[in-house]
Every structure is written in structure tokens, then in C-alpha cells.
Design a binder for these strands. Structure first.
Lengths: 220, 220
DNA sequence: AAAAGTATGTTGTTATAACAACAAATGGAG
DNA sequence: CTCCATTTGTTGTTATAACAACATACTTTT
């Protein structure tokens, strides 16, 4: 088992192989392999295990009634998915989880962590605390996305997102973790319209951008 | 102190006055009163305490660069706010928290709950577990909102939201917790445009609505 | 019961983004 | 280096939602 790797993840950060082994046993850990494009969790089902991506990566997707396909999130190695649904237990998934390449996932049955377990091993509360921090962080990310998609115009969304990035990275000169298509998806607008607006803003001298690198000139 | 009331909240559900007293002491609980329209937390500041609304109620708001005012959430008595920011600790608030009427808030310093406290009282892990459930539930609510605002058309958003409500309430005949303005805000569209679309959908025989009561006739 | 306030629906106009289709640039792979 | 695939930018057209302004309920107050 990859104790080395796990000790560097959010959930087992800094723990010894022995500790991790104990916790994994306690959580009924099971490793599973998925081929590219294979579905890990289907929308509509209920789940009781969280997943940790060991290798490869995984996408959280939604296909709506009209066949539109949209990507809500992408989970790299070391990160956790489905923790909300697994913890609440009875909520059907609104999304589908798919391996976007050959992927190994470690499943942890989180149920017994959340029941008031009388003989709760000393690691229980540590794990819950970390799981909570993961949840809080995801919360913040969701709030931010709502925030940046609240303005009605593309320009408004761009300014909201870009000025946040500038502030978060402490400089008006920064790079973003998205290409144009991904940024458009994140801001919930059309890619070509986004390109157009960025071009216009450059002509107006508000900013300069090339690929995922931005320089802001004016913020009000 | 309102042990009676607190024992009915998510965070202290079913706990005895004695237990609650212990926990409140441990969390440095402090009650504070706010007048109508008074600001509780300002956007930009960092906070270390979560709030529980004891009476009255509180709104999570955002005022953007252009003076648009929008309400992101409304917290009734017994419910918790700012748990994400207080737990992460160093994140500046993106929102402002305001009392919308005369309101009493109980603040709990959540920091010591999250540090690996050596002599952690037996209640610690219970509290964290509940706080985690609160967080998971908020997560789900945020995800749902993103979900319902992802379709580009007003009709798409309405169908997404309404069919979810129908499914959640187990009937095509249901009521929603919003008036028109609030629904428009939630779906991030104009109120009058929303009204218009609802009218059109009724004429097309897709649904019937009066105030916050809906009957769906067709779902595909 | 009148008055004032709030919520909802209606219409026409205007702004804006989606869409489609293509051109140009970029980046790997052989 | 050339070829193919991907990404990005451009343009014109069309659909759609925002906006403004008003009419019609429906509530609440006095």
C-alpha cells in the first residue's frame, strides 16, 4: 500500500505508515482500478465511501436533460471526492464521477467515522477534523464560483474572477489554472464570447493576456 | 443561557444542559445582540468564531463593485453561519453578514476545536462531527444552486430547479420556499423575465403555478 | 374601508450573449 | 520539418434575457 504517498495527502498528512495502516483497516479501505472513461459513481445512486485518487485523475461531470455535458470539477492524485454524499449518506448523486485516464482510487467507508463509535480509535477525531477541513475548503471553492458567476455580463464575471486571482496571488501579474475553454466553463459563458470580451478589454487597456497569463492595469 | 433552545439545534442536538454548558465554556461562548440592519461581520475581515442565531435572523450578502446588492443566504434561529471562514481562519470574508431584524447571536470560538488538543474533552469529537455535517449540508446546497444556474436559459434553470423540488418532495404538486423575487435571485435571472417565462410555460401546458405553489404536468 | 405598500404579471425596446463557422496560431508526434 | 490536433481569436447572425415602465392583484396598516 502507498503509505508514502498517503502521508502527503490532506487526509493522512504526516502520519506514519503504522498509523495509516490502522486507519485504513478501520475504514475498510479498498483500492480499485479504473480504465480511461470508466464511470466510478453514477448520478442518481447513493454512496457510502469517499474516494481518494491515488493515480490518474477523475472528473465530476453533469449531463443534463438536453445532452449538454459539463465538467464541474477535476480531482488530481491525493485529493478526495464524494465526501459530501458519502457523509450525508442518503443523498442521490447529482453528478457522475468518471476516470479521465487510467486511475487508481482508494475507497474509504466513512460511515463508521460518523457514527458515535464507542471504541473510537484515537485517530478517529483526527480524521474527522481533516475531513471537515476538506469540506470547508470545498465550500469556499463553491462559494467563490457562485460569486464569480453572479454578475450578469461576461465582463463582470471576468473582473470578479481576475481581480480575485490578483488579490489571492498578491500581484496584478499572475497566471490562472485554466485555459480559455475551462475558464469559460467555470464562469458559465461561451468560450468564443469570452475570447471576444477579453480582446475588447485589452483594446480598452484594462488588461493584457496571453494564454493563461494576465496583467491587470486598472481595477476599480 | 438558552440550553433548552440549543439542545434543539443541529450543533447541540439532544444534549443535556450540563453537557452544553461544558461545551460552551470550552468554546468561549459569547452572546451578542444586534439591532436591525446592523452588520455582524464585514466583507474583507477574517474571523475565528462561528455564529449561531438564537433569535431574529441574519443575511449573508454581497455588494459588488457596481453597487448591486445581492442576498446569498438567510440564516434562521438555530442555524450556524461563518463556519467555513472561522474554521479555515485566514480567509477574508467575501460576504457581509447583517441582522435583518433584532437578533441575538451566540459566538463560538472554533479554533481550539480544530487544533489537536491533547486534553480534548469528550465532547470535542462530537462537536466536530456535527460541524462537519453542517458543512456537508451547506456544500450540497451550494452544489445544487450551481446546478440549477448552469443551464443558460431561464426555462432550463426553472426546469432544473422545479423538477428537483418535485423529486425532493415526492410529488409533482409542491410548494417552494421562495417568492418570485427570491426565486429569480436564486436562479440568477431577472424577476420580470422569470415571470414571463413562467407565464409562457403555463400557456404551453407544462405547469401551473400560483404564488409559491406549483404543479408540473410534463417532465422529460 | 381606504390607503399605502408589496408582489406579480405584461409589454415593448435594447443590450448582450449564444451560436455557427471559420481563420490563425500553437504544440506535439512522427 | 511537416502534419495533425488543439487552442484561441474573429466575425456576423440570431436568440434570449435584461431593462424600464406600467397595470393588476394582494396585503397590511390605520
Amino acid at each position: 500500500m502507498d503509505y508514502e504517498f498517503l502521508s502527503k495527502t490532506m487526509l493522512f498528512s504526516g502520519d506514519s505508515p503504522d498509523e495509516i495502516k490502522t486507519m485504513l483497516d478501520c475504514l475498510g479501505a479498498a483500492k480499485k482500478h479504473y480504465a480511461k472513461s470508466e464511470v466510478i459513481y453514477h448520478a442518481g445512486e447513493t454512496v457510502s465511501s469517499i474516494g481518494i485518487v491515488l493515480s490518474g485523475s477523475v472528473q465530476i461531470e453533469n449531463d443534463d436533460l438536453w445532452g449538454n455535458h459539463s465538467v464541474l470539477d477535476s480531482i488530481p492524485p491525493g485529493f478526495v471526492f464524494a465526501e459530501t454524499y458519502a457523509s450525508l449518506g442518503d443523498e442521490p448523486l447529482m453528478v457522475t464521477v468518471t476516470a479521465i485516464e487510467d486511475t487508481e482510487v482508494l475507497f474509504l467507508n466513512v460511515k463508521r467515522l460518523l457514527k458515535t463509535c464507542p471504541n473510537s480509535c484515537s485517530h478517529h477525531s483526527k480524521l474527522i477534523r481533516r475531513l471537515f477541513m476538506v469540506s470547508a475548503q470545498k465550500n469556499l471553492n463553491l462559494s467563490r464560483r457562485i460569486f464569480h458567476t453572479t454578475p450578469k455580463s461576461i465582463r463582470g464575471r471576468l473582473l470578479s474572477y481576475l481581480s480575485f486571482q490578483a488579490s489571492a496571488q498578491g500581484s496584478l501579474d499572475f497566471t490562472i489554472p485554466f485555459n480559455r475553454q475551462q475558464l469559460a466553463d467555470y464562469l458559465n459563458v461561451e468560450r468564443s464570447a469570452l475570447s471576444g470580451e477579453l480582446g475588447k478589454m485589452q483594446r480598452e487597456g484594462l488588461l493584457k493576456t496571453e494564454k493563461n497569463h494576465f496583467i491587470l492595469y486598472e481595477i476599480r
